[in-house]
Nucleic acid binder design. Structure first.
Lengths: 240, 240
DNA sequence: GGCGGGGTCATTGTATACATTAAAAGGTTT
DNA sequence: AAACCTTTTAATGTATACAATGACCCCGCC
């Protein structure tokens, strides 16, 4: 069974990712106590962990806020992702096992099925994202560097958080799907330079798509009534 | 004034880096309470933070151990450092301001002076390491990516921890000094490819030097008498 | 004699009470 | 009326008491 701190962490993290706690929302420990159903100690631990992973920002004697991302932050993030995912793909091309190749091929086939099916669009999107994750994780693992894998996981999670308020278009997903197919060919032919180039462009495309995507409707902040609408927003961190 | 948690963090971290707590040492919260002079709450917070930064490993209901590094870990670490420091140098070559160039040049001149001086060797080494850090930090900042800078800081700190038990040879330092001089020339001429290549080889050389260095004499573990000599060393993570 | 079970202990996980900080409100003064 | 100081209050930071987990040790059993 998981500890109270783990549960608090998972609860808060999920609520940030699904938009319940929007960027810049203040996270008061006492409110989270009610929200998570544990005492302040594990809540605090969860917040510190989330801060270490860049989900929230903690200021001394001033509590935690959900981190918000400026355009420059996102450029920075995706530039690094492009470099590192490209590097991972380059290494993976020299090392992927037949099983890994099969796993990627299977995920791509599943994607085909999902996109051709007639399930609701939301479901298609979330299934696609899951399979997308499978493809990337497999490449990372094949790269043979656990540290690289950890950093990439971290970067992707942050990208996911930035994605939160965005809606995925089917056009974008189809494009992404083509990239995956190309990537599989590159890996199968063990063409490291090709694999790296595809992956880099794949990430850059994702950055561009994020820029142009329509923002999804914002949910109201959860947690009953906030005492004051925006209690402390001293520095709005969106670049102005 | 700094908080109790910050002091505990700084104290423990320093003790890990200077070898007071050697790799695999068990860190019991109650002992750290005495050691740091604060209560368990901030000690726990410090340990969680150190775990997030890979200085210690925490296992549920089982406490914290100082992390130890296998050869593979180090290879992985330095491979990534080479990639990222190279990338940073490549970007820096296109962007370094005159002030940055001057700062690097000044640091190199200081290194000259330190190495030519007749201060004790230990002092020479520590001064050199400080200036070395200045050079690298300047390059990182010049790369223009705060995220890249943070990751590199993190990687270097881990490398430092692995260095802890090592003794730096003056030969190694002289070699490193030459690299810095080359790097400055590359940056001054804005030759991005050259800068990247130098930095990569600089890092690879550091890895190799670490391999061949003589281990420094181990200090005994601090904190009075350990109840049992090696209370729990289930998996010794040094490869072999 | 070795192996398994149960009890005891040390150690970590959690809850809560207290201390401290800084932001907000209100009153006084200029 | 505006600015400053004082008071209040709500939040975080810290300490400590209690709960629960897991390791160690001893004893009985096979």
């Amino acid at each position: 069974m998981s500890s109270a701190a783990d549960r608090a962490y998972a609860t808060i993290r999920a609520s940030i990712l699904n938009g319940t706690f929007p960027p810049n929302a203040r996270l008061k420990e006492n409110e989270l106590v009610d929200f998570c159903g544990v005492s302040r100690t594990p809540v605090r631990e969860a917040l510190r962990r989330l801060a270490a992973e860049d989900f929230v920002v903690i200021t001394r004697n001033q509590g935690a806020q959900v981190k918000s991302w400026s355009h420059d932050d996102l450029d920075d993030l995706f530039a690094l992702r492009a470099l590192l995912e490209g590097h991972a793909a380059e290494r993976a091309a020299r090392r992927t096992s037949p099983e890994d190749l099969r796993r990627i091929a299977a995920a791509i086939q599943e994607m085909d099925a999902v996109l051709a099916g007639d399930t609701p669009q939301d479901e298609q999107v979330s299934e696609f994202l899951r399979l997308n994750r499978v493809v990337h994780e497999t490449v990372w693992r094949a790269s043979g560097s656990t540290r690289l894998m950890r950093i990439l996981r971290h970067l992707v999670e942050q990208a996911l958080m930035a994605h939160t308020a965005q809606r995925f278009s089917l056009t974008r997903i189809a494009e992404s799907h083509h990239h995956h197919q190309d990537l599989l060919r590159a890996l199968q032919s063990r063409d490291a330079a090709w694999a790296e180039a595809i992956m880099r462009s794949h990430i850059h495309a994702a950055r561009r798509a994020l820029e142009h995507a329509a923002p999804a409707p914002q949910r109201p902040p959860a947690g009953g009534e906030p005492a004051r609408q925006q209690p402390r927003a001293r520095h709005d961190s969106r670049a102005e």
